[in-house]
Design a protein around this nucleic acid. Structure first.
Length: 883
DNA sequence: TCGTCTCACACATTTGAAGAGC
DNA sequence: AGCTCTTCAAATGTGTGAGACG
């Protein structure tokens, strides 16, 4: 989404240039309607990335570490919940990262966006998060620009970067610029690093980072008591609710009791006592609290000690509560499809361990890591911890936790999804195993799961097995489990791989998972979706394991959707089933879901123009089938809003990432010839905004096994742990869009490599691609480390960039003038605005507090409209731009 | 009836202004 | 006059619980 190449000249008339100012030059550079620029993406005009990339750019080595990964993991172990309110709520834990590998002299912009992890709506039932239907229409994505942006690489690298000022809201009409999210949906924050000079060319020198443990479910009120406790004990603002706080439950209950008692006493007094005897009443009321308190204490065991004691002490957190549900359950509706649910139960002790220090402060990474044994990490992955940005954060966690899980698989109660999976061996995964008939059974003990098996067990598991990080991720963060619809997605992201790899390396501190036990699923038939719903491992294809292994949860929504696309076609035989389509209530529909019985694919909703194409040339509403073989199939791959291809009727994605997108012809038709997209009869509705009925929980679409045949991309995206050198390499390989899901606009088809055959990607025939493919085929599980990524030639960057043609959705972009670099004259003339129609529907709203980054002479500009509150993270500029 | 959401509340923290002192 | 430090009030952030809504 961020891979929007800004061509002001294209969509914006010169007259608008005055609206934006380049802070350093004090020169009006940018059209006020930056949104237009973002929407107008001329794919054809895009230059190959390779050409644009600066040679030996330091960005290749850009790495990001989640500083407070330990805290995040604590939450993810339980199932992170984020409060969303109308007025906006900050995130906690905060997203704090550290950057390295930046060019100290260059300026960078840091962006935070939050994308849906899947297309499901969740409900907290039976101490676990379960899918209850399809996601609501995706809202216009907004991006929070770090207040320091743009800043030099030195600046970013010399400090901890915190996005604590970013606020989440569920107010779809929010005018504050906050990030709008749906409640009870699962989201994945992403951090993007973009060279400031590339603002006009987003997607070129950008790096996206996703930390699986930062996934969360939005809520308006906390559902899981454990989360509440964690928040109270971790968040300084909630100190009042701690055991020793004045606003703790004990005190509150005491106050309440006092009030009640006093009122009762008053009544009694009034009735039976002399009204004049006020002193007695007063004394009683005063004494009552103590007694009441004792009573309360009895009823509600509360420990005096710090957080640890509190956690353990909580009666509510009985075994059932304590257990963290990581279960993976396959939702079985009519289809064999079943939701793979993984229940992970974490003993309070684990939680306690994971919790913060006595002061209640967030455990810093160091402390957290210490708890996790690192040695295993090495065994899992050859990648050095240092190599992966993510690894530092999460690496520790994985090893310990993972191993236990693997063993659990063997247990009769092992997660159905896992058990159902084919052989424990990664390569051995069979399609048959992919879909367990019933996912109801859950592993008795979480720890039991064996490391090797873990990959199989989890839809994403395959990846886990390959990459210890994922496993750890799964173990630590239930969130990681991918949703059935998106399982294929995971494979697509190269960036994720890097992250995961890193994860494994980090020592978790073992917060959690070691003790976690997975309670049996109460309702087997139900589509119980453990908080982090585990992505079902539908893919029977042994060759595609890498893809499966990758946890979807971590994948950005866009990527996911893309992957889904691929998966969908995989099952041509499946009859179309009811699928939740994200109704596009808004002017700009976000995504389209394509589903078969087994598979539900969420497509970024194409721009209006694209929508038209879909409605007109897309699958007939009656049949709902969308033959891939059609010429349009090609168009589907690249997201091309460009009217140039309106006749194709192909399903195209918004080309927000024009930069990444290559020429149309360059984009291979990823769709498998045999496969056909099945569009719901209601698909045409998508063109018109309107809520679609959510599928019944039972009908939760489950991805069907995909045809074997790893795609070159697949190999790239899902390199075995050994193959992944490090994040740096990966980024270098996929510097621009590909490495990062968010930016990588890999064609949806490519998202699911398993479904895609090598033939489907002619463009990939680049020298590197074949190698990768061969490797993946030869060593699906663990290609030789030496070859995997190193083999990729720098030139491939351009190749991949081309592949990234389609962006799932085009975010609403509101650029702050300060962020806008001077216009490149060459760009202005490159494409006529008329050629690329703006897609108003996909606007990316950038929010930041520009003050900090502004030079003094310009600060006054932002002072006036600034909000009253001191922090003033958001700024409204001219009514158009919201910062 | 249930699930979800909104709001007011109390408390803690943060922020910024004002004043004092050097 | 300028700077630093302290104090204080307001703003802000937080979870809770009651109530409203569908």
């Amino acid at each position: 989404m961020l891979g929007v190449e800004m061509y002001p000249s294209l969509a914006l008339g010169p007259q608008r240039l005055n609206d934006c100012y380049y802070r350093d030059r004090d020169v009006p550079l940018y059209p006020s309607t930056c949104e237009m620029a973002a929407r107008a993406l001329p794919p054809a005009l895009l230059k190959p990335h390779a050409n644009t990339e600066t040679p030996a750019a330091p960005q290749d080595s850009v790495r990001m570490e989640l500083e407070n990964a330990g805290l995040w993991k604590q939450f993810s172990t339980v199932g992170t919940e984020m409060i969303v309110t109308k007025k906006g709520r900050r995130m906690f834990p905060q997203l704090r990262v550290k950057l390295s590998g930046l060019n100290p002299s260059l300026r960078y912009i840091l962006l935070l966006d939050i994308v849906p992890v899947d297309s499901s709506r969740y409900r907290f039932q039976d101490n676990s998060w379960q899918v209850v239907g399809g996601a609501e229409a995706r809202l216009p994505d907004r991006v929070f620009i770090h207040p320091d942006s743009p800043a030099t690489g030195e600046h970013w690298q010399n400090r901890t970067i915190s996005f604590h000022r970013a606020k989440l809201t569920n107010n779809t009409l929010d005018a504050q610029g906050y990030i709008i999210l749906h409640s009870l949906h699962r989201y994945q924050p992403r951090v993007h690093v973009i060279e400031a000079r590339d603002v006009l060319m987003w997607g070129r020198a950008q790096h996206s980072f996703t930390f699986p443990e930062t996934q969360f479910i939005t809520v308006t009120a906390y559902q899981n008591n454990k989360i509440t406790e964690l928040k109270i004990n971790s968040n300084p603002f909630a100190k009042g609710f701690r055991e020793n706080g004045m606003n703790c439950k004990k005190q509150r209950d005491a106050r309440l009791k006092r009030k009640i008692t006093s009122s009762q006493e008053e009544c009694l007094d009034i009735e039976s006592c002399d009204p004049c005897d006020s002193t007695e009443l007063l004394s009683q009321s005063v004494e009552l609290p103590s007694s009441a308190l004792s009573i309360i204490n009895t009823a509600l065991p509360i420990t005096d000690s710090g957080f640890h004691t509190e956690v353990s002490s909580h009666p509510d957190q009985t075994d059932s509560d304590q257990t963290l549900v990581i279960e993976q359950a396959f939702l079985t509706s009519e289809m064999p499809s079943s939701m793979e649910s993984q229940q992970q139960t974490t003993s309070e002790n684990n939680v306690n361990n994971a919790l913060m220090d006595e002061t209640g402060q967030m455990m810093d990474l160091s402390g957290y890591t210490s708890s996790f044994p690192t040695p295993q990490l090495s065994s899992h992955t050859s990648v050095p911890q240092s190599s992966s940005m993510y690894s530092v954060v999460s690496s520790t966690q994985s090893s310990d936790l993972e191993l236990p899980r693997a063993s659990s698989i063997s247990s009769p109660h092992s997660m159905p999804a896992y058990s159902s999976l084919p052989s424990s061996e990664y390569p051995g995964m069979n399609s048959s195993t992919a879909m367990p008939a019933s996912t109801t059974s859950l592993p008795d003990s979480y720890p039991s799961i064996s490391h090797s098996t873990s990959s199989h067990l989890l839809s994403s598991s395959s990846y886990h097995s390959l990459l210890p990080t994922d496993q750890s991720q799964d173990n630590l963060s239930p969130h990681t489990p991918t949703n059935p619809p998106f399982q294929s997605i995971s494979a697509c992201q190269g960036s994720r791989l890097t992250i995961d790899s890193g994860q494994n390396q980090v020592d978790d501190g073992g917060l959690s998972s070691a003790n976690a036990t997975t309670p049996a699923v109460p309702n087997p038939t139900q589509t119980a979706f453990p908080f982090p719903p585990v992505q079902p491992t539908n893919d029977p294809d042994p060759t595609s394991p890498p893809c499966q292994s990758i946890p979807q949860s971590a994948l950005p929504y866009q990527q996911v959707s893309q992957c889904n696309q691929i998966s969908t076609p995989s099952d041509p035989n499946t009859t179309p089933t009811a699928f939740p389509f994200p109704p596009s209530g808004q002017s700009t529909p976000n995504s389209i879901m394509v589903s078969s019985n087994l598979n539900t694919t969420v497509f970024p909703f194409p721009p209006v123009q694209q929508q038209l194409n879909l409605s007109t040339s897309g699958p007939s509403p009656a049949t709902g089938s969308f033959p891939v073989s059609q010429p349009s199939g090609l168009s589907t791959i690249p997201a091309i809003p460009n009217p140039v291809h309106p006749t194709t009727g192909s399903f195209s994605f918004p080309s927000t990432n024009a930069i990444h997108q290559g020429p149309m012809q360059s984009v291979p038709n990823t769709l498998h010839p045999s496969t056909a997209y099945t569009f719901p009869a209601s698909l045409p509705k998508h063109t018109t905004p309107g809520p679609l009925p959510n599928p019944a929980p039972t009908s939760y679409p489950f991805p069907t096994p995909i045809q074997p045949g790893p795609h070159p991309l697949q190999s790239l995206t899902l390199p075995s742990p050994c193959s992944i050198p490090n994040t740096t390499q990966i980024q270098s390989t996929f510097p621009q869009s590909y490495h990062n899901p968010s930016f990588s606009h890999i064609p949806p088809q490519m998202a699911n490599p398993s479904q895609i055959t090598s033939q489907s990607f002619p463009p990939l025939q680049t020298s590197s691609a074949p190698q990768l493919l061969s490797q993946s085929l030869t060593h699906p599980q663990c290609p030789p480390p030496s070859n995997a990524y190193p083999a990729v030639a720098p030139t491939e960057i351009g190749t991949f960039s081309q592949l990234n043609s389609a962006t799932p959705y085009l975010p609403d972009v509101v650029l702050h003038p300060s962020l806008l670099p001077s216009l490149d004259p060459s760009l202005s003339s490159s494409a006529p605005p008329s050629l690329y129609n703006p897609f108003s529907s996909y606007s990316l709203r950038l929010c930041q507090d520009p003050r900090s980054s502004l030079h003094l002479p310009l600060r006054h500009i932002y002072r006036q409209p600034q909000h009253a509150h001191g922090q003033g993270s958001y700024f409204d500029l001219g009514g158009r731009t919201v910062f």
